[in-house]
Each structure stands twice: as C-alpha cells, then as structure tokens.
C-alpha cells in the first residue's frame, strides 16, 4: 500500500452561518452573544477538507482519517451528530474555548502537541488538512503554524484539488488572485493542505457510517483533554458590529428603459 495516507483534519466548529452574530464582552474576553445557544456546524472550509480526506481514503486502502477539533465538549458533541453520518473518521476532541477570539498561535500549539502524540500516526505519511481559513477567526494561520511546529516543509493554501499519483507524488491546485489556480507538484507526504471549497459535494447521511463512528466518538469525547489557551500578548481594544447602514433611495416608478439609462450613466461615471 504505497499510498496509504495518514490524514489529520484540523476542523473547528463555528456558528451556523445563518445565525445573527453580535459581539459581547465576557469575563474571558470578547465573545458572541448567546454563543453556547447558537447552533454550530463544522467549519465550512474544514468540512471540505474532511470530505476530501474521506474521498482520498476510499481511493487509497489502508489510509486513516483523524478529525482533530478544539471546542467546548458539549458543542463538539452536538456537531458530531450532524457530521458523523457523512464520512468515517476517528475523532480527537480537545475541550477548549469556542469562537474566533482565542489566540491563533496558542491554538496551533495545542493542536500540534495533540497531533504529535496521536497513537499510530506515521508522520512520513501525514497529510495535514484543514480549512484555509476558519469562519470564526478567519486568520488563515493556524494550520500553517501547526505544520511549521510539526516540521512539515511543504504547505499549500486555498486548495481546491489534489491528484495523487502512483509514485506518491501529488498535484495540487491552489487559489490565487484573479480567479485562477496555481498548479504545483509535490514529491509526496508529509504536506499541509489548507482547503478552500474543494470539488466534492457534501456527502449523504449514511446511518451505518454514523453508527460505526459513534462507537469511537462518544468514548473519545468522554476522554477529551482540556486545553487552556494563552493570550500571547494579544489584547482586544474594541469589538463591534460594523456600522454600515446606508440611506437607500428606493426607485419605484421608473420604467425599465429609464432605469437602464440611469444605470448606464452611473456605470460610465468615474
């Protein structure tokens, strides 16, 4: 099994993107109003990474997928109920703070330490996956830092595609400016891939996958280690909702011809 992969997917949990978000100040620093009440989902880009990992695993027998996730245990459990039916993985939960405001270097250090200690992980076969950014902090740095701490010398961000070749090398498509992809070929594992959307649709719910996953997920959650994140000198001066309320001129009574003329004039204006 030359291409048996050990894929570790780092994936946080984020508020369901449909929710209304409002920042508040808590004793532990900034947070979101009703943060523990808001429904949560697996980070959208990290979800792409997880589905791509599962797809690679089915094509490369002998591969394994770990899902490393840091968040409040209760929230992790709730999110597992929505994703554990989709693809098979081994959950590595870390009980820690929720949200986008904890410091990224500190988060990365905890993730890297956890991954380094994973029993059975062969780091020479490691593909470290995650989203290229999170929908919470949105920094796009955590995965890089984890890779750097683990000493991985090849990293790709904004990945939409990976094509694994028989010799173990792989071609990667990364998003770059102008709606294009940069094409690279990497000699092989280990590597870090921060995923954008990828090319896979969300997998269907499969009750059997769910049932099998749950046998390991619940015990893993019960044993989840608790992480305390350091601030690393980061302080928040202010956290607020952007004030972008505009005065909207509603044009109701113009014909399409008149609107078109007005628009063409507006388009041409500097």
């Amino acid at each position: 099994m030359p291409n048996a992969l050990h894929i570790v997917v780092c994936a946080g949990i984020v508020p369901d993107p449909l929710q209304t978000l409002e920042p508040v100040t808590t004793a532990a620093g900034p947070g979101l109003k009703n943060e523990m009440v808001l429904p949560a989902v697996l980070d959208p880009w990290a979800s792409s990474a997880l589905y791509e990992a599962a797809s690679l695993t089915t094509k490369n027998p002998g591969s394994r997928v770990w899902l490393v996730s840091l968040g409040p245990k209760a929230k992790l459990q709730a999110v597992m109920m929505t994703i554990a039916q989709k693809v098979a993985f081994e959950l590595v939960p870390i009980d820690g703070p929720i949200g986008g405001f904890p410091e990224a270097h500190s988060t990365a250090a905890v993730l890297a330490e956890t991954i380094a200690a994973l029993p059975g992980l062969d780091r020479s076969h490691l593909l470290l996956f995650g989203g290229w950014e999170s929908a919470t902090r949105g920094a796009g740095v955590t995965l890089q830092l984890v890779g750097e701490i683990l000493g991985i010398a090849d990293q790709f961000q904004g990945v939409d595609q990976i094509d694994l070749r028989e010799d173990g090398s792989f071609e990667v498509l990364e998003r770059v400016e102008g709606g294009k992809h940069q094409v690279s070929v990497c000699a092989g594992t280990p590597a870090v891939l921060g995923w954008a959307t990828g090319g896979l649709a969300e997998p269907r719910n499969n009750p059997q996958i769910g049932m099998a996953n749950m046998r390991t997920i619940m015990p893993a959650l019960q044993k989840a280690k608790v992480a305390k994140l350091e601030a690393n000198g980061l302080s928040y001066v202010s956290v607020s909702l952007p004030k972008q309320q505009r005065t909207t001129r509603v044009v109701k009574d113009l014909s399409p011809d008149e609107i078109a003329r007005e628009l063409v004039e507006w388009i041409g204006a500097e």
């Binding site: 900034p30 405001f101 690393n232 000198g233 980061l234 001066v237 952007p242």
Partner: peptide, 13 residues
C-alpha cells in the same frame, strides 16, 4: 472576525 461580520481593534505586546 466571523467573515467580515464583526470588527475588532487589537494590539499585541
């Protein structure tokens, strides 16, 4: 933060 839905001013020592 939160995909351009929350704005913050930060500082680091």
């Amino acid at each position: 933060f939160y995909r351009q839905r929350v704005e913050a001013a930060i500082s680091r020592d």
